[in-house]
Write a protein that binds this DNA or RNA. Structure first.
Length: 423
RNA sequence: GCGGGCGUCGCCAAGUGGUUAAGGCAGCGGCUUGUGGCGCCGCUAUUCGGGGGUUCGAAUCCCCUCGCUCGCCCCA
């Protein structure tokens, strides 16, 4: 194959799909706006250290999935694998936290060097929100509700909100020690993956898909029991607020987010229609992150939605489709010149006009006019030019192909023409 | 990084060792250089992802390679 192809894991979104994307993006923007969120746009490339420090050296994302390269100044750069780190960096760099709490949203491509599969690409798109300086459990629920309501507004059913608390950093440290000790005494019974993870990221063993390991874990110490009173009160409060808002949720004690910076509330919204990668939306609280990146001790909470996965769920939904208001049929030297001019005039009056540029027979042009889905055909030929008129023909209505029912309008009478085309 | 499935026209596909690689959709052209949605006719793969090999002969068998896809790991 000599034809140049796209890079592996990169996806072209074709016109047929972009309409759906735009509809989703528009709806999301409305939800963000109504919730008082402002957009932030950060670069696609950052210094590598930003991600290794925030996401965590031991995570797969940092360990093996980053697009990292040296630039000409020999700096190590990385294409962003997620949005949160960049947003925190930007917020600190521009002193936004000095102006009180912040509610931000972002959208754009992310890059992870992984083997592509259903719902996973190397360049993928996320829309997300990040809040800083909102500490109460009420904020957790407010933020979750934005995601939930947005997804509901898209008409998605059979979504499940899964919830867990990872406790404070302290709680997690304690629990980690407990769990490691417990697992080490049963080391022989663990599957190879879990043995490996015992060294790198023991909490992740909890959501192992190995059934043997899972049954072993039945009796393992739980994270819940390691939560201090304050942490478990907070978790309880989150649940109460969710119930008050009548947002259904399922506690999943094994939900452990992969990125190091999460603490307390962690959640995912999943769908059974997505194949192996079931998570459409994932997020949680990251109270230590801002400080870890050199900022003040300010709390954070946010989530990200995977656009491609969301679009997959929307596959069955109609988006209306767009067709031009009018199709401009034109033939003959003078008529073609006039048509070009007329198209421009109509467009500047904000009509959508498809101009036939083929110069082929009227019959052919009408066929295309029909296919375009336009409501009107605007006809310009030598006869019309000679009489200073255009001929309007309503498409897709009757089966008359005669020109008796056509409307003739002077093309100098733009107002009348516009009025007709809009009717 | 590791496993499974697959690769014939823009799309869907037949063909599984023998001279010219079905068919459908879409596209283009004609019947119809002044009028459309129907119909009819015609055109559109010197070639079967790419390379090498076996054979008198390969899209069909073998090897390598590339790509797609599903799953594992992990994440959105």
């Amino acid at each position: 194959m000599n034809q140049i192809q796209r890079l592996r894991g990169m996806v072209d979104v074709l016109p047929e799909q972009t309409e759906r994307w735009q509809a989703v993006e528009k709806l999301a923007r409305e939800h963000f706006y109504r919730a008082g969120f402002k957009e932030i746009r950060t670069p696609l490339i950052e210094v590598t250290e930003l991600f290794s420090r925030s996401i965590g050296e031991a995570t797969d994302v940092v360990g093996k999935e980053m697009y990292t390269f040296s630039d000409r100044g020999d700096r190590s750069c990385t294409l962003r694998p997620e949005g949160t780190a960049s947003v925190v960096r930007a917020v600190l760099e521009h002193g936004l936290l000095n102006q009180g709490s912040q509610r931000l949203w972002y959208a754009g491509p992310m890059f992870r060097y992984e083997r592509p599969q259903a719902g996973r690409q190397r360049q993928f798109h996320q829309m997300g929100v990040e809040c800083f300086g909102l500490d109460s459990p009420r904020s957790d629920v407010e933020v979750i509700a934005i995601a939930w309501d947005f997804l509901q507004a898209l008409g998605l059913d059979s979504l499940v909100l899964e919830l867990n608390s990872l406790g404070s950093t302290e709680d997690r440290k304690n629990y980690r020690a407990l769990l490691v000790e417990w697992l080490e005494s049963r080391y022989e019974h663990l599957d190879p993956d879990s043995k490996q993870r015992l060294k790198t990221n023991p909490l992740r063993i909890l959501d192992s898909k190995n059934s043997h390991t899972q049954s072993l874990l039945q009796d393992a110490p739980t994270l819940q029991k390691s939560l201090c009173d304050e942490s478990s009160d907070r978790f309880k409060a989150v649940q109460n607020f969710l119930e008050a808002l009548q947002i259904p949720y399922k506690i999943n004690p094994k939900l452990v987010r992969g990125l190091d910076y999460y603490s307390h509330t962690a959640f995912e919204i999943t769908s059974e229609h997505l194949g192996a990668q079931a998570t459409v939306c994932g997020g949680g609280r990251y109270d230590g992150l801002v400080e870890q990146l050199g900022g003040p001790s300010v709390s954070g909470i946010g989530w990200a939605i995977g656009m491609e996965r969301l679009i997959m769920l929307l596959e069955g939904f109609k988006t209306g489709g767009s067709s031009p208001d009018a199709y401009l049929v034109n033939k003959g030297d003078k008529a073609e010149a006039k048509a070009l001019e007329l198209a421009r005039k109509l467009r500047s009056a904000s009509l959508s006009i498809e101009l036939d540029g083929s110069g082929s027979s009227f019959g052919k042009q009408f066929k295309r006019a029909n296919r375009s889905g336009a409501t009107w055909a605007v006809v310009l030929g030598d006869d019309e030019v000679n009489s200073g008129q255009v001929r309007l023909k309503k498409l897709y209505c009757s089966n008359n192909s005669s020109s008796e029912n056509d409307l003739l309008v002077d093309y100098s009478d733009l107002d009348r023409l516009l009025a007709l085309l809009r009717s």
